[in-house]
Amino acid sequence: MYNHDGEDIFVIDSHTHLWDASTENITHEGGEQFIQCFYDYHTGFTPEEHQWTLEEYRKYSAERMTQDLFSNAAVDMAIFQPTYLSDFYANGFNTIEDNAELANQYPGRFVLNGRFDPRDGEAGKEELRRQKEKHDISGVKLYTAEWNGDSKGWRLDSDAAFEFLELCSELGIENIHPHKGPTIRPLNRDAFDVADVDDAATSFPELNFVVEHVGLPRLDDFCWIAAQEPNVYGGLAVAAPLAVHRPRKFGEIMGELLFWLGEDRLLFGSDYALWDPDWLVETVMNAELTQEQRDEYGVELSTDVMKKIMGENAAELYDIDIEAKKQEFQSDDITAEFGLESHYGAGTAPADD
């Protein structure tokens, strides 16, 4: 467990992937453009000493992912957010079945989310039912700009999407994670617009809409929607690494989010493997607002606030008992593998790496 200024912080990385963008898996030029754009984000916001080569980045092993997430106690649990992109990749970019294989190796450490695409119609509904039955998912990741044949995107407030959201409600899949952030080449920027969250959130108050990437670059639009919709949350993946090279911008983003949404509706996410929590957790935990920002927004990044953002809010959404997890992790496979016993023992905290 991560330790900050003498206090233990239980970290749930709410946005992770295990992807395959190897050249053998690419079936469309869009697949190469996509991973190259991802890599540009990686190198643009990752400290030089932590940057991967492109070949490492294309396809990494489950073993490497496990080590990067857990070996230095930066992260305690991680939530998988699948992104299929089946028009670009023969076996999918990042599928629930690939994620499940790793999650099954380390019970309790990963939360497995599914996905749906309303353009898949009845077959898509059957697939969503299968995901629930086989994996007991309680969340889905939605990629509204994903290509599907001749279609280059869909809307969360469409009739077809509402049918799937109704099914989610019936099945007990309560956490809806739409990607509403920066465009990844060659996808359509407008298909990631945050506006369609408004009607969906109003129409399904029993569901939680975790808007990934907090709508960037449409932060204002997102904040105004989230301010009026109490079931809208913000996922900080993509926003978090701005703390490295754009600390003042990161402070501005956090100030706006805390002013409009408050500390109970924000979730940390690394977007692994875009960025690695090995260094990102420490960077975010050490971030501060300027005095001017504290005065303007009336908030600050206190340890109590960050405890919620880094793990407690995700635990609330996914019904995770943090104290029970601490007990469970005292002797689980990852704790033994990486020698982390003291991290969950009685009172011995690790030094920051």
Score class of each variant (00 low, 15 high):
232 V>M: 14
146 E>Q: 15
67 Q>I: 04
341 E>F: 11
323 E>F: 03
36 Q>D: 00
141 K>V: 03
31 G>F: 11
100 A>I: 02
215 G>F: 08
21 A>M: 10
187 L>P: 01
224 W>R: 06
302 S>H: 06
156 L>P: 02
325 K>M: 12
183 T>W: 00
67 Q>R: 14
32 E>F: 11
170 E>G: 06
192 F>Y: 14
348 T>S: 07
4 H>M: 05
267 L>D: 04
99 N>L: 05
181 G>A: 11
226 A>C: 08
220 D>A: 10
153 G>T: 02
237 A>T: 15
60 Y>L: 12
30 G>F: 00
45 F>L: 15
117 D>N: 15
309 I>A: 04
349 A>Y: 14
138 S>C: 07
175 N>F: 09
60 Y>K: 07
104 N>I: 01
298 G>H: 08
56 E>T: 02
151 S>I: 08
21 A>R: 09
129 R>P: 10
210 V>I: 13
331 S>Y: 13
239 A>T: 09
149 G>H: 06
31 G>V: 00
347 G>L: 13
348 T>Y: 05
74 A>H: 13
27 T>V: 15
181 G>R: 15
128 L>Y: 05
178 P>L: 14
99 N>R: 01
200 A>H: 03
302 S>F: 12
202 T>F: 14
308 K>N: 00
286 N>V: 01
13 D>A: 05
60 Y>M: 09
216 L>W: 07
1 M>A: 07
256 E>S: 05
216 L>T: 00
274 L>G: 08
340 L>W: 08
117 D>T: 13
274 L>F: 15
29 E>I: 01
180 K>I: 01
336 A>P: 02
151 S>T: 12
193 D>M: 07
60 Y>N: 08
280 L>W: 09
17 H>Y: 09
192 F>I: 07
216 L>P: 00
38 F>W: 12
136 D>Y: 01
225 I>E: 05
105 Q>Y: 07
61 S>L: 06
99 N>Y: 06
207 L>E: 00
71 S>Y: 08
296 E>M: 13
128 L>R: 04
116 F>M: 11
263 E>P: 01
29 E>N: 10
236 L>R: 05
339 G>D: 10
262 G>D: 11
75 V>D: 02
102 L>W: 01
319 D>I: 01
155 R>G: 05
140 V>W: 06
248 R>S: 03
254 M>F: 04
183 T>P: 02
3 N>W: 04
136 D>L: 06
202 T>K: 12
293 Q>M: 07
202 T>A: 11
126 E>N: 13
264 D>S: 08
164 F>N: 00
202 T>E: 15
215 G>T: 05
152 K>N: 14
81 Q>G: 03
281 V>G: 02
174 E>W: 07
343 H>A: 04
132 K>F: 15
212 E>H: 03
224 W>F: 08
175 N>C: 13
